[in-house]
């Protein structure tokens, strides 16, 4: 068994996204500058899915990738217990969050560092970045002052 070389707390470098020519290159380029760059419709400003080509609101095909707010609320989350050998270097279960950003997008991410305690749906987070194999990946910073489970059932 060879040791997995990585700087990340969670994953092996081999999982680093292939950035060059990738459909999400604007996101990775922005992340390298410390910005959360996401796609919006250039015509009506609707937040679009990361791989969306045409706006479902107005039909425009021009996409504007621009910096968006690095704050949001947890829409869903899981604690991943299965840790695939060779891919996951963390020794404890790790969080996966689906964050609803204040700019309107929903983005899946883990946390920048191993969390001391698990947050809950409705908790607020800030988005920062962790480095995986030279690529900056949007990742959550949990706000320790957030009261837990503030979102009412809908």
């Amino acid at each position: 068994m060879t040791a997995v070389l990585t700087a990340d707390w969670l994953l092996a470098d081999t999982l680093a996204p292939h950035v060059e020519g990738d459909a999400l290159a604007p996101l990775y380029d922005g992340a390298a500058r410390g910005e959360l760059v996401l796609p919006f419709c250039a015509s009506c400003d609707l937040p679009l899915d990361l791989d969306q080509q045409v706006c479902d609101g107005c039909g425009a095909a021009e996409i504007a990738w621009r910096a968006s707010a690095r704050t949001g609320v947890i829409h869903s989350l899981t604690l991943m217990h299965r840790r695939e050998p060779g891919l996951v270097v963390a020794t404890e279960p790790y969080p996966i969050l689906d964050v609803e950003l204040d700019g309107g997008h929903r983005l899946i991410m883990t946390t920048c560092v191993p969390p001391a305690s698990l947050p809950r749906i409705g908790d607020r987070v800030t988005v920062a970045f962790r480095e995986l194999g030279g690529v900056m990946i949007p990742s959550a910073v949990l706000d320790p002052t957030t009261p837990s489970a503030t979102e009412a059932r809908s």
Partner: peptide, 20 residues
Amino acid sequence: AHSGGQSGVRGLERASGVLG
């Protein structure tokens, strides 16, 4: 866990620990 690749949306998800 080993399938899914390192490009596009799936590549970003996998780089966030979404394996399998």
